[in-house]
Each structure stands twice: as C-alpha cells, then as structure tokens.
Design a protein around this nucleic acid. Structure first.
Length: 170
DNA sequence: GCCAACGTTGGC
DNA sequence: GCCAACGTTGGC
C-alpha cells in the first residue's frame, strides 16, 4: 500500500473521533496536548502513518455522544510513532500479536486549537448540502481517522464561526 | 440496549 | 482465496 504521489504544500485536513466519555475536546483543552493511542484499524493507522504531517488540522468529533458531532479543532503536533498501549497486557488496547521490534499500531500527538462554542451536531451536519459527500456522513462508515476535503473543512469552519466569535485558524 | 454495517479471523 | 463466524463501531 503505497500512495500519496500527488503532493501539495497545503496542510492535510482530517477528522478524528473520540468518545467524549473517554477523552473530550474539553479534556484536550485542559491538557493542551494528547497522544492518540488506541487506534486499532489498519486504514486509520495508515492515514496517521502515511498522511499526517506536523501542523495538519483535525476536526475533533465526539462519537457515541448525545448528541454526537464536531466539537472543535486540533492540530497534529507529533508524527506517528509506536503506540505503547499495544505492549501493555493490562491495557484494553493490548495486542499480543504485536512486538516491540515490529510494532503494529501507531499513534500521533494532537494539540488543542479550539473548542467550538457549541457542538456542530450530526443532525446539523447532515442538513448541510455542501457536506453531503463527507465520508463521516456516509452510511455505515465508521473510520475513526479520516481525511477531509478542503471544501468540506472550510464549510465546517464556516458553520462553527457562525456561532462563535470568529476563531482564526492560520 | 438494539442492531446494521463493517473489519478481521480462521477453517477449508 | 472464499466466506461464515465473530467482534466492533456508533447511531439511535
């Protein structure tokens, strides 16, 4: 699996899901930064490993929430590296099939950028025609790390800034 | 808690 | 390599 031939200088744009009960945008705001351990899906891992660059912007999505939706913005502040929880027998994320000499799972580090003044709920996102092609909104899609097009990303930021004193993300 | 959709595993 | 069984995700 080798892709990424078409290179642009533009920063990558992503969406990452977290259950707010586990780690919410408020937790990220409090801590400033966090490592994104626990990804156990190869497609998601590959996006982190092959796609993510320092400074890439990330829409922070709350899943399994009431309601679910996009809660804020983060930024990639550390490139993919081995996720230590895969080696920890006491961790929910332990993977006995992985070894320190050949780690199977990776994590990136995220830094807090902004918490939206109110959540952009899944219902609202679905009501936006401009977002109809977003992977997040496709039926049955469950990837916890996914790329976002520049147009979709800009539209989401527009929705957020419509309800909050303009955050400027540069 | 239900369950549809999807990913992974493993027998063959 | 097929595919059934199983496990997980995540909306509802």
């Amino acid at each position: 699996m080798a892709k990424a031939k078409a290179k642009t200088s533009a920063a990558g744009l992503w969406l990452m899901k977290s259950e707010p009960e586990v780690f919410s945008i408020a937790d990220l705001e409090r801590d400033g930064t966090t490592t994104w351990e626990g990804v156990r899906n190869y497609t998601a891992r590959n996006f982190m490993r092959d796609g993510m660059k320092l400074g890439d912007l990330v829409l922070y999505y709350h899943s399994n929430a009431a309601p679910s939706g996009i809660a804020g913005l983060a930024r990639v502040s550390g490139l993919a590296e081995p996720d230590p929880t895969q080696f920890d027998p006491g961790s929910d994320y332990h993977d006995p099939g992985s070894s320190e000499s050949d780690p199977r799972w990776l994590m990136v580090r995220l830094g807090f950028v902004e918490r939206f003044s109110s959540l952009l709920s899944l219902d609202q996102l679905k009501s936006e025609a401009a977002l109809s092609g977003m992977p997040l909104l496709q039926r049955g899609q469950r990837l916890s790390v996914q790329p976002v097009s520049a147009a979709h990303f800009a539209h989401v930021l527009g929705l957020a800034s419509a309800r909050t004193p303009l955050p400027s993300v540069t």
